[in-house]
Design a protein around this nucleic acid. Structure first.
Lengths: 195, 195
DNA sequence: ACCCTCTATCTATGGAGATAGGTAGTTGTT
DNA sequence: AACAACTACCTATCTCCATAGATAGAGGGT
């Protein structure tokens, strides 16, 4: 049900077409929640049927049309209910740790490469999220800008603070992964040196 | 494909029935990779068809039978290939961070409860994993004990070290989550006090 | 003999998501 | 006029996983 709430979250900022949402999922929000268009369009249709959003056909060019969705009162209610409900946790399913636990079966080179790839991946994510925080802080983020229209200084600060804090959480997690993988390299070095 | 490799990982220790695997997935290995029996039994059948494991029907009581699976050479090969291949990363999909980013829509009480639940959940996981590390270190873990049979002191140390290191990674991640959620409580306190 | 719990396995349904296509109109460039 | 690139939306298939059942024998206690 998180996809549905990710979509509602976006539509609380402004009305959007499925394509707009898809584009946002590829860039900004996509760094927290990703979804392909083949999942977005059908879900939007279902949400309209459930009365959470309302779609209106608007012209596009001479002959073309597109459908722009707006969140309804029921949609806002549903989104609020999700945020106020206690969180649910998935069972643990961690492919990286699963592999790490059995590295005695891998070659020393592959083990080291594994940790180096882990560091590279999370370093790249840290940069993405730091960029994201920058656009949130200086309000150059268009979705946020739209969201803050007509809001008081205090409200704007509050809204921005939660978003920045969420991305800081992503960064903290990634940095922990990097530190762990660096220790992993040392461990491989120590255990496999004598081989 | 990680389920398949989690199953292979278990069967590198000793031959097991589907039920044995299921039990282990609920306790030891389940703290890294969880799977329900409705997923385990069919996957084992598919793996047998693919020649990765071999099943033999063994008697159980007077009339009953059960099927015990052993890993084959091809299975070991496939497991090794997985461990030596570069890791693949899923797209980001983080329901906790998604919620955190939109806490301006939640009530202050619900926001604080959300972070407290996050702390409680991860604290419980830390205890589970610390227990797990204890049973690995003192070799009271039966699956590990079986795995270390006939191994040299050095080999045993090496095998154990990777498993401990994997769980240390889980703990590090959980502790980062706890620290983040504690900062979240402070943030809620600061932002919502004046409401 | 009865009952409970554990062992051992199976099926069925549905949601979520990945992957890989397809169609059609628009806009801008050469 | 041709074209590429982008906007806008749709479909199909497949795997994974959750959830919720069902069946049947084993082992132990009352």
């Amino acid at each position: 049900m998180s996809l549905r709430n990710a979509l509602l979250a976006m539509l609380t900022s402004q009305p959007m077409t499925g394509y707009d949402v898809y584009k946002n999922f590829q860039t900004s929000v996509g760094y927290v929640w990703h979804a392909p268009d083949s999942q977005i369009y059908p879900e939007l249709r279902r949400m309209e049927q459930d009365g959470l959003i309302r779609g209106e056909t608007v012209p596009w060019g001479k002959r073309g049309t597109k459908k722009r969705y707006s969140i309804t009162e029921a949609g806002v209610e549903s989104f609020r209910a999700w945020l106020n409900a206690p969180p649910e946790y998935q069972r643990e399913r961690d492919p990286v740790r699963l592999r790490a636990a059995y590295l005695e079966w891998a070659s020393p080179t592959a083990s080291a490469d594994f940790f180096r790839a882990h560091i590279a991946y999370h370093s790249a994510r840290v940069e993405d999220w730091e960029d994201m925080i920058r656009t949130l802080r200086d309000h150059s983020n268009p979705t946020l800008a739209k969201r803050l229209e007509g809001k008081s200084e205090e409200e704007a600060e509050r809204i921005t603070a939660y978003k920045v804090f969420a991305y800081e959480g992503m960064i903290a997690r990634a940095q922990t992964e990097i530190e762990w993988a660096e220790k992993g390299l040392e461990l491989v070095e120590r255990l496999e040196r004598r081989g």
